[in-house]
Design a protein around this nucleic acid. Structure first.
Lengths: 326, 326
DNA sequence: TTGAAAGCGCTAACAA
DNA sequence: TTGTTAGCGCTTTCAA
């Protein structure tokens, strides 16, 4: 290809990679030849030769939830800044697809993985990764095995904080809308935080509505919950998307938020600030989670850094969706 | 690795790929050996040998705009169904990054590309692709060169339809909020549609506010537009995200939507149905654009299909953000 | 400072 | 039906 420079292929490699000693004159000649030729070094050949692809595998449950879009954005930026590429896949909250995606990523010989699994403890993808030498870091998931790298927040604590705010507002009957546990271990943790807050204040558990991440109808179970003898005056939802769906379903049923019922979410997606009423929620630093995950992953890849559990701070954002009960 | 089966490496390759004639017995033996060995065929080696990676490169301006997240989702599904993987990158509406991304994708020897360029006509990435043998299909972009594959909608017609609805509602002074043209050729087309609608009805062009895709403040220019001697009674925005920002800025300035001012968007993101007032907009079939683009791209890759321009239908969604002027 | 050559993991043509 | 072999595009010893 660039024998046009009158040098060996090895020398070209040296120039392209800026490694090895090359005299200025030959280097210049090679550069010239490079510029004159439509030549683009193949990462495929390079990967095969070096056993390093400078590519990270990313797996998220869904791109349609902005919390993941934001995190992926952070990962993109961080990876690019460090000279890495990204292969992105989504599992649609399905363990089967999760496994296939990880398999594919590994087949592509990514140097490392950043992933959010449905359940970091039980997911088959987790077991598979356990037996692989490739470093990986979980994001949003809790740490379930020794030696796992995790970048997340304390979901239970954040959930507890939100529910405690609801209690402080005067609510005594607080229900929860939560994603199916098999699809999200975060749901379980948030639910634990919810229960802890209620227990701390000696309150009974409100009705808990469990939902799939696809398209369950919220109206029927909501109606049922509201027709209890002591209906809840507030709902804590395990994600902002659920919270928005809940507010809409309540509106549809003629219940005003927050006048009749308060609603709080979890995630802190920007969207929550745009809806009316604006969403009270626990805010996860999604983009930072993404950048930190990639930063740490690359440290593990390049500098054999030890696995770490990085817990980032969350915050509570107040909003128009909650108020004291009537 | 799998000489454990007592066969040659070639036979294993045949079994793994289900190609070539292999006797049932040896095949079974290989399968057994495969199962007993932690072996995962390397796509890197395979790509190098076959000069095909079964990987598609995707480039979008931003993942944070749901219109692209939706389209990417469609691409994912479609690619996966056809046995292709995806490498995703985002350009952040920056031509420089656009070029680098395409370069990287090509270095990774993707079999084809699906991309939304800032400007399909002038973008340096477009010229680079022109000289490459790799098939690519533009999404959302208009077709600017012969032989380009494009999957899109008729932006100008859709914009004209929206603005015409505004006119039909009785508006006579209609302004526009539009993304910087250098960052989005779609903006230009939508603006053309806007101007066409006004011209058809012999109306004067309203004030046009040009905005960057990052974080321009909308308030000042909006104030200026509203303090004209004949202020507009409606704004057409070149994206839903701009429209939502506009509504918020108007609310901040104490103007009620749609009572005092109507606002219409463009894109049809789900989010628009959740905000209050809900957004009137032109709906693009984003996910279908994604699936169609990948379908067509793979046809070009595998069956040398001819480049095509696929224009999908749009629709107009009414919403609470527009009403007749006072 | 440079070049020759081996080899990364795979596929495919050819022989057997 | 199976095995041998060359070679995909690169990097990297090792010699010169």
């Amino acid at each position: 290809v660039a024998r046009r420079a009158g040098v060996s292929i090895a020398t070209v490699s040296r120039v392209v990679n800026g490694r090895g000693n090359v005299s200025e004159t030959t280097a210049a000649a090679v550069q010239r030849a490079l510029a004159e030729t439509p030549f683009r070094p193949s990462n495929v050949g390079r990967s095969l030769a070096t056993a390093r692809s400078r590519t990270l595998g990313i797996l998220v449950p869904s791109l349609k939830n902005p919390i993941f879009a934001d995190a992926v954005h952070g990962m993109q930026m961080s990876a690019e800044a460090q000279g890495y590429g990204i292969i992105l896949m989504s599992s649609e909250y399905d363990e089967e697809r999760e496994l296939r995606a990880v398999d594919r990523l590994l087949a592509n010989r990514v140097d490392g993985l950043v992933l959010t699994l449905s359940d970091a403890g039980s997911s088959p993808a987790a077991s598979m990764l356990q037996r692989e030498p490739v470093p990986y870091v979980l994001v949003f998931n809790p740490r379930r095995r020794k030696g796992q790298s995790v970048v997340s927040i304390d979901h239970a604590a954040a959930a507890e904080a939100v529910v405690t705010r609801l209690i402080d507002l005067g609510h005594r009957g607080i229900g929860m809308v939560v994603g199916r546990l098999r699809s999200s271990d975060r749901s379980g943790l948030r639910r634990a935080g919810y229960e802890r807050a209620l227990a701390r204040h000696h309150l009974a558990l409100g009705p808990v509505i469990e939902l799939g991440f696809d398209s369950d109808d919220l109206r029927a179970p909501l109606e049922r919950a509201l027709s209890l003898r002591r209906p809840p005056t507030a709902f804590f939802c395990s994600t902002d998307l659920f919270a928005i769906a809940t507010i809409r379903a309540l509106a549809h049923a003629g219940r005003r938020v927050p006048d009749e019922i308060s609603v709080a979410g979890f995630d802190g997606v920007a969207l929550g600030e745009w809806v009316t009423p604006s969403l009270a929620t626990a805010v996860q630093p999604a983009e930072t989670i993404g950048t930190e995950a990639v930063r740490h992953l690359i440290a593990r890849i390049e500098r054999q850094a030890a696995p770490a559990q990085i817990l980032l701070p969350f915050s509570i954002r107040s909003g128009g969706s909650w108020a004291p009960p009537k």
